[in-house]
Simulated scan of single mutants.
Amino acid sequence: MDGLIRGRSQERSNDADAAASALTLAVLLGAGVATARAWDHLAETGDAAAARVCEAHARGAPLPVAIAALGGRWADVAVAWSVATSVGAPLADTLRGIAASMRDAQEAADEVRVALAEPAATAKLMGWLPLVAVALGAVLGFDTIGVLIGSPFGIACLVGGVALTVLARRWNAHFVRKAADEGAVPGMGADLLAIALSGGVSIDRARDVVDGARADASVEGDVSSLEGILALSRSAGVPAVELLRASAELERHRARVEARVRAARLSSRLLLPLGVCTLPAFLLLGVVPMFLSVVSSSALTLP
Rank of each mutant, 00 (worst) to 15 (best):
V159M: 09
V159F: 07
S218R: 09
D143T: 10
G46H: 09
P186R: 10
V219L: 12
A43P: 05
M126R: 02
V238M: 04
M290C: 10
T165W: 03
L274D: 03
G187I: 10
G150M: 06
T301I: 13
D222H: 01
P303V: 12
V87P: 04
G228H: 02
L232F: 01
A38M: 08
V132K: 02
G237Q: 06
V201P: 00
G3D: 09
G187D: 12
D191T: 14
L129C: 04
L226G: 08
M126N: 02
R169E: 06
V209W: 02
G200R: 05
V294E: 14
S267D: 15
L230P: 11
V241G: 02
L270P: 08
A121E: 05
S21P: 03
L42V: 01
W74K: 10
A259Q: 13
V295F: 15
A19N: 06
R234W: 01
W128C: 03
R59P: 00
A173N: 07
A163W: 05
I229W: 07
L226Q: 09
I145Q: 10
M126V: 00
V185F: 09
A215G: 00
A138M: 14
H41S: 11
G137T: 11
V294R: 13
P62V: 15
L95I: 03
A36P: 05
V276L: 15
A184R: 12
S101K: 04
D143I: 11
A173G: 14
L193S: 12
R177W: 14
V147C: 06
A206E: 00
G160T: 05
E220R: 11
A138Y: 09
T165L: 03
L193Y: 08
V87K: 01
A117P: 00
H57V: 15
G3H: 04
